[in-house]
Design a protein around this nucleic acid. Structure first.
Length: 496
RNA sequence: GCGACGGUCGUCCAGUUUGGUCUAGGACAUCAGAUUGCCAAUCUGGUAACCCGGGUUCAAAUCCCGGCCGUCGCACCA
């Protein structure tokens, strides 16, 4: 039993580990004009990210029979006319002429005047309201410049004529735009999940806290296309009915199962219950402490403009509750929009009764970067019994490196044997070879980046072809013959 | 974006108050050699930094201005 604690794990400790060991670090850091909100994954981080994605594919995509696409990051202007992002993905801003403070014009007005400002109020309307009511900056009593709109999308110019296009602010638009072709060519049937992993781009005003609020970030999105009249026809629901969802609406329903949520009317239908449970099941395999997670039902004023019903999957971290996944019932908002803008027909035929239906969409929009941060924080332990060693207790299938090969002594015959053993395994697993420093130091180095196993080559190896396997968490050891190592490592790195 | 505070080796910190032996120091980490040989041992040696630009000055890590970045608060988070 590991005597340890991660109750003290802080953002700063994870940041330090990330910088020192190559998980992630600031983009363009050698130049003084490096903009905020852009971060790179180093060698260790990228391995972990790839493994997280592999787990996502295994536990969500393949498990549920979803299909996956990979689209362009730059998309045409029309896409965002149809999606509503050109209209809604921007805020009217009022800037003080004097001190430069910026306020959201509509909210500022409604706060100061005590009345509701309509969502789509034009700049002209907002300007005249400001001047009629003689509103001044609340910080310095300065006057406001005319209201401008700030859109969070990055604009790019295409070709020599610089035609306007945008970096996608969410990956899911590709899935909507491609839906008709993908559904047809893959002979789809509702309900069908179409998924995508990729980068999205948002011009955040104040990016902060490394991976937690980025301007360029990874999303893993799943769009479930469904028949709105058949949201309770989900035979697979029984597989997940007993999975725990910590649901929060106006009160916390801790340890409530998916099936109980349905019975109590906390979730509206089986389809939503099924996918929330699937998501919870996935995260329970990442090493995140599920006792420190919740599904929070968003109030109407918190929801995105396209969302009819929204649950955030949140994780408790040292800096508070962090949104990892947005689960939105988008209804027919997207396909309707793309349909009318493009004149493309997105209806599909239900095979059993030949009715035409415009699918509704339930979406699971996962932030990969935040997920990885949360896994790191929940996995970070200090072992007070052994010199406060830092142990990253990652599940083997998420560990950036599965094992290290270590000669006990740097004697030529032992080094040679170790290299031979490593070359037997290195193509099948992410691994390192290390002969530098004392054996204890090398163990410590490995466990800090979550390497679950160390294979130590000693005198006995040279005699009987066995190695010592040392376990990261318990520090226990056992002897395994070289011929069995691949099978052993396969078994140990399997998802359970 | 506003405000407050800050930015020195990979990481953490000393040095800035009062400009000058700072040719920038330490710890940890890292590399090489010696030694040891199953849990961060020891010894020796090495690599490695004043965020960027401008200004003041005989002289700037240190003072001033601007920018960039970071932390926190406000605002924002579709």
């Amino acid at each position: 039993m590991l005597v340890s604690s991660n109750t003290m794990t802080s953002y700063d400790q994870i940041m330090k580990l990330a910088l020192e060991r190559g998980f992630y670090f600031p983009s363009c850091e050698i130049y003084p004009d490096a903009p905020a909100g852009f971060w790179e994954y180093g060698p260790v981080g990228v391995n972990m990210k790839n493994k997280f994605i592999a787990l996502w594919r295994r536990e969500l995509i393949r498990r549920d029979g979803m299909i996956e696409i990979d689209g362009s990051q730059i998309m045409s202007r029309s896409v965002f006319e149809a999606s509503g992002h050109l209209r809604n993905f921007s805020d009217p801003l009022a800037e003080c002429k004097n001190c430069g403070s910026i306020f959201r014009a509509d909210r500022y007005l409604s706060e100061k005047l005590g009345k509701l400002i309509p969502e789509g109020a034009s700049e002209a309307v907002l300007n005249s309201m400001i001047s009629e009511n003689h509103l001044q900056c609340q910080n310095c009593k300065g006057e406001f410049k005319p209201v401008t709109r700030f859109n969070m999308m990055f604009e790019v110019g295409i070709g020599s004529s610089n035609d306007v296009a945008y970096l996608r602010p969410e990956t899911c638009q590709t899935i909507f735009v491609d839906f008709a072709r993908v559904f047809k060519t893959m002979r789809g049937r509702l309900p069908l999940g179409i998924a995508q992993i990729g980068k999205s781009f948002r011009n955040e005003i104040a990016p902060r806290q490394s991976l937690l609020r980025l301007r360029e970030f990874y999303q893993a999105e799943i769009e479930v296309f469904c028949n709105p009249d058949r949201l309770n026809e989900v035979p697979k629901f029984d597989e997940v009915r007993d999975i725990t969802l910590n649901l929060v609406d106006n009160k916390f329903h801790r340890d409530i199962t998916a099936v109980e949520c349905l019975k109590q009317g906390l979730l509206p239908n089986k389809l939503i219950a099924y996918y929330l449970a699937l998501l919870a099941d996935f995260y329970s395999r990442t090493g995140i402490d599920m006792k420190r997670t919740r599904f929070r039902r968003l109030a109407d004023d918190e929801k995105a403009f396209y969302s009819h019903l929204a649950f955030d999957f949140e994780v408790e971290t040292s800096i508070g509750w962090l949104e990892l996944v947005a689960c939105n019932y988008r209804a027919d908002y997207d396909l309707k929009g793309h349909s009318s803008t493009s004149n493309h027909n997105f209806e599909v035929v239900e095979p059993n009764d030949q009715t035409k239906v415009l699918p509704h969409i339930f979406e699971l929009s996962m932030g990969i970067d935040r997920s990885l941060y949360s896994i790191l924080e929940h996995s970070y332990h200090e072992d007070f019994r052994h010199d406060d060693r830092v142990v990253l207790r990652l599940n083997p299938y998420l560990a950036p490196i599965l094992f290290g090969v270590l000669p006990l002594m740097s004697k030529p015959n032992m080094v040679e044997k170790s290299r031979t053993i490593h070359s037997l395994l290195r193509k099948d697993f992410d691994s390192v070879y290390d002969e530098s420093g004392s054996i204890g130091r090398r163990y410590r180095r490995l466990e800090e980046i979550g390497v679950p196993f160390a294979l130590t080559i000693d005198q006995q190896t040279l005699v009987d072809d066995t190695v010592t396997v040392r376990y990261r968490d318990s520090m226990e050891q056992e002897r395994i013959s070289i011929g069995d190592l691949k099978k052993f490592l396969d078994a140990k790195s399997a998802v359970n």
